[in-house]
Simulated assay, not measured.
Amino acid sequence: FLQSKYPHRLVVLGFPCNQFGYQENCSNGEILNSLKYVRPGNGYQPGFTVFEKCEVNGTNTHPVFAYLKDKLPFPDDDPHTLIQDPKFLIWKGEPFKRYSKKFETINIEPDIQRLLRLTKT
């Protein structure tokens, strides 16, 4: 939704991971089919780029997440647990903000709007 609301100004990237309650327990080739027919279903087609399934924690952490977690500390309301459900906002190629696992991604729009206002000045 947000990517279509801010075309040419916002890019959303999805990294499926099976480390959080087994949400992505299918193979890479089955992930898009699963989105379309199972969860969320109803013919859902993501309007953003979906990468191959990766790990965001542990010894096989994808380099993107290793970099982001190194650059941005734990959010204040997130306990320092071994298993993290990372959500990041990147601004002009640089890590800007890390959100806690309690943060609902739907609420990210005010931060996006604030950053987009910065580019107008």
Score class of each variant (00 low, 15 high):
Asp85Arg: 11
Val64Ser: 03
Val12Glu: 06
Pro63Phe: 06
Leu72Cys: 06
Phe51Leu: 10
Ile90Phe: 01
Leu10Gln: 11
Asp78Glu: 15
Trp91Tyr: 14
Lys69Glu: 05
Gln19Ile: 03
Asn60His: 11
Thr61Phe: 05
Asn18Cys: 08
His8Ser: 15
Leu32Ser: 10
Gln23Phe: 03
Phe96Ala: 12
Pro75Gly: 04
His80Ser: 08
Phe74Val: 06
Tyr6Thr: 04
Asn25Thr: 05
Tyr44Asp: 04
Arg98Met: 07
Glu52Lys: 13
Ile108Arg: 00
Val38Trp: 13
Asn25Arg: 09
Glu24Asn: 12
Leu82Tyr: 09
Lys5Pro: 10
Pro63Ala: 05
Tyr44Phe: 15
Ile108Leu: 00
Tyr44Arg: 08
Ile90His: 00
Gly47Asp: 13
Ser100Ile: 06
Gly58Lys: 09
Glu24Arg: 07
Asn28Val: 06
Ile112His: 05
Tyr44Leu: 08
Lys102Tyr: 13
Phe74Cys: 08
Gln45Trp: 08
Ser4Asp: 13
Thr105Val: 15
Arg98Cys: 04
Pro73Ile: 09
Pro75Arg: 08
Phe96Met: 05
Thr121Ile: 06
Leu89Lys: 12
Leu10Pro: 03
Val56Gly: 02
Lys97Met: 03
Val64Asp: 01
Leu89Pro: 04
Tyr6Asn: 10
Ala66Arg: 14
Glu104Leu: 10
Phe20Ile: 02
Cys54Trp: 10
Cys17His: 03
Asp111Ala: 05
Cys54Ala: 12
Lys53Thr: 02
Leu115Val: 04
Phe88Ser: 05
Gln113Ser: 06
Phe74Pro: 02
Thr49Tyr: 14
Leu89Met: 14
Phe20Thr: 00
Gly47Thr: 07
Pro86His: 11
Val50Pro: 01
Asn60Phe: 07
Ser4His: 11
Asn18Gln: 09
Ile83Phe: 14
Asn28Tyr: 05
Ile83Pro: 00
Thr49Gly: 05
Pro73Gln: 07
Glu30Ala: 12
Tyr22Pro: 00
Pro7Ile: 05
Cys26Gly: 04
Leu2Ser: 04
Leu35Met: 15
Thr81Tyr: 12
Thr119Gln: 09
Thr81Asp: 15
Pro16Gln: 02
Tyr37Val: 11
Asn42Ser: 13
Asp85Gly: 00
